[in-house]
Structure formats: C-alpha cells, structure tokens
C-alpha cells in the first residue's frame, strides 16, 4: 500500500517537504512505517525515534496496524514557548 505521511514542525524542515510517500506491504504496522521512514529519509531517523505518529487523526502505538489509505501524520516534539 502507498501511504502519504504529513510532516510537522522540525520533521518538515529536515525533510524539506511537507509530505512524503512511503510504500509498504499490506498488513504493515506502525513500527514498519517508522522503519521505512528512517531508511528512506535518514535525516529524519534520530528525531523519528522520539516522535509520535498519528493514523487517521489518532495517535497510534507501534503495534497498531495500518488501514489502507490511512492518513499519517508525523508529529515531532516542539519545545519553544517562553524565553
């Protein structure tokens, strides 16, 4: 299946794009997606380990399966606020 992953904040900057496309075998789960993202976009790898992935608008666990045509969002932590 082909998935479109929407990137936010620092992830969007590192990848220099707002969306990446990842091809995965059917019946893949969130951790497979995480692995594929790290491999195909190595600049995202260190951040990806500590980022959240949302599937169809809901934060997902690594063991959750990926439905076909799922909308994925990669949400890295953001620290700024005061200073």
């Amino acid at each position: 299946m082909r998935l479109h992953v929407q990137l936010f904040a620092r992830a969007r900057e590192l990848a220099a794009t707002a969306t990446v496309v990842i091809d995965l075998p059917d019946a893949a789960c969130v951790s497979d997606l995480r692995h594929a993202l790290s491999t195909q976009h190595p600049q995202l790898a260190p951040l990806l380990q500590r980022s959240a992935l949302a599937v169809n608008g809901e934060f997902a666990d690594d063991t959750d399966s990926l439905p076909a045509n799922a909308e994925i969002a990669l949400l890295p932590p953001v620290s700024g606020g005061g200073e």
Partner: peptide, 9 residues
C-alpha cells in the same frame, strides 16, 4: 528528543 535535534526558538 536527542539534545540538539529540536531547535529552540
């Protein structure tokens, strides 16, 4: 995140 991976404002 690993230190330095997420820049501050």
């Amino acid at each position: 995140p690993p230190p330095g991976e997420v820049p501050s404002c």
